[in-house]
Nucleic acid binder design. Structure first.
Lengths: 217, 217
DNA sequence: CTGGATCCACACAGATACTG
DNA sequence: CAGTATCTGTGTGGATCCAG
C-alpha cells in the first residue's frame, strides 16, 4: 500500500496509506505498550511472516512512525520505538480496540492473548469515573496490572503484588464486561476468581465495560 | 482478510479483521455521511475496482456493518446503509482522519476531494469551544457547510446560503489549518477568499485546526 | 442507466528455509 | 538476534462484459 494510493485528498485515506496495511496497526499496538526488539515483536505476533514484519518496520520507519535504534554496547540490541508522530496513533488504536471488543466473543482455536493485547483491552474499554483502585489481572501465563484513579488509568504488563484486587480469568471476560453475566454469575460459572468481594469484581466490570455483542446476519 | 485471521484475542485485531481490508474504511467513511447507492459509492471512490467494491459490500453486509435495502417502487433503487453497529465506527474513522490530516500536505496529481472527504475533514478536526457560527465551504465543485455551536458541530454536503461566513478555497487549506500561514497570509497568498473579515477566517482556522506536519526521515 | 459479474495480470501476503 | 531469500497462492487492480 505504500506505493498504492487511494487518490483522495482525505485524512482517512492518508492514514490508511500509512498504516492501513495488514499487520501494521498490530505492530503499532504492541509498540504503544513499550519499545520492542524484532524478536519481541515476533513473539507477540506469532502468525506474522518474518518478511512481512521486516517490510512493515521499514515502511513505518520510512514514514516517520517508528525509529530503529541500536543500543550502546554491550547489549548492541536493536530496538524499535514509536516516534511522537507514531504515538499519536494511540487514539486510533484505542478507538479500533473499543469498537472491536464487542466482536471478541469466544476465544477461537489457536488464538492467543498477550500482555500487550490485555493492556490495550483495558485501556480501550476504560470508562473514567469516581473509582480509585488497583488491579492485577491474570489470564494463563499473562499478567498485567492497572491503577485507576478517577479519570486516570495506568495499565502495563507485569504483576502488582499489592493490588486492591487480584483477578484470575479462566476464559475471556467478555460475558462479564458486556453485561451478559453479572459478577456473581461470572464467579459461579467459574469464569473468574478473585481475591476480593463480589462487589469489588462488579466495580471492575463496570470500569471496563464493553458494549453488547452486535447482531449479525 | 475475512477468512484470514490474526490469531489474537484482541479488539484491535478483531476490528481489523472486519474493516481492515483495503477500501473498507473508505466505503464506511462515505456511508457515515449518508446512505448511498452502488453508483454513488463508485463516484466517490473513483479508483476502486468494481469487483472490490462489490466484494467489500458483501463482506460488510455479512459482518452486520452495512445493510442492503431495496427501495419501494417506483424507484426500486438499492441503497447501502450503515447499521447502528457500523455507525459506531464513526469514532474510528474520525480518529484516523484526525491523525492522517497532518500528513495531507499538497494535493497530489490526480487526487480528488469529495463532499464526503470534506465533511469528514471538518468533523475530525473540529475542536469544540465557545464559538457559535455557520460556514459554507467551497472547494472547486464541492460545497459543504458546517454549523458550530459550542460543543456541537453539524457538517453536511451542500450549500448554506445564509451562512455567517462563506469560504472559497483555491487549494488545500492545510497551511492555514496547521498554523503554517495565518488568516491574513492565507488571504494574501490567494489560498482562500471569504465573504467576511480576517478575524472571522482566523476563528474558522482555530475551530478546525490540525497538528503540524510530521517530520519524515 | 444501474448494479453488478467475469476475466486476466500481477503485486503482495504466507510459509519456510537460510544467513551474517 | 535480526533479518534475507525463495517459492507459492490469494487478493487487488484494471478492463471489459452482461442482466434488469
Amino acid at each position: 500500500m505504500t506505493t498504492k494510493t487511494y487518490g483522495q485528498y482525505c485524512g482517512v485515506a492518508r492514514a490508511l496509506e500509512l498504516v492501513g496495511e495488514r499487520w501494521a496497526l498490530l505492530i503499532i499496538r504492541d509498540l504503544l505498550v513499550a519499545p520492542k526488539r524484532y524478536t519481541d515483536l515476533r513473539a507477540g505476533l506469532p502468525r506474522i511472516p518474518t518478511n512481512v514484519l521486516a517490510t512493515r518496520l521499514k515502511e513505518l520507519e520510512q514514514a516517520g512512525i517508528v525509529t530503529r535504534r541500536v543500543q550502546p554496547r554491550p547489549s548492541g540490541a536493536i530496538v524499535y520505538e514509536l516516534t511522537p508522530y507514531g504515538e499519536d496513533l494511540d487514539q486510533v488504536v484505542l478507538a479500533l480496540g473499543r469498537w472491536g471488543a464487542r466482536s471478541l466473543g469466544e476465544l477461537r482455536p489457536g488464538e492467543i492473548a498477550t500482555a500487550e493485547t490485555l493492556v490495550m483491552a483495558l485501556r480501550s474499554t476504560f470508562e473514567p469515573g469516581d473509582v480509585k483502585a488497583s488491579y492485577e489481572l491474570r489470564f494463563g501465563e499473562v499478567v498485567v496490572h492497572a491503577v485507576v484513579d478517577g479519570e486516570s488509568l495506568e495499565a502495563a504488563p507485569g504483576p502488582l503484588p499489592d493490588a486492591d484486587l487480584a483477578i484470575e480469568a479462566y476464559a475471556p471476560l467478555s460475558p462479564l464486561l458486556n453485561g451478559e453475566l453479572d459478577a456473581k454469575a461470572a464467579l459461579a460459572a467459574g469464569l473468574v476468581s478473585t481475591s476480593g468481594s463480589i462487589a469489588a469484581l462488579a466495580r471492575f466490570a463496570k470500569l471496563f465495560r464493553i458494549g453488547p455483542t452486535p447482531a449479525v446476519a
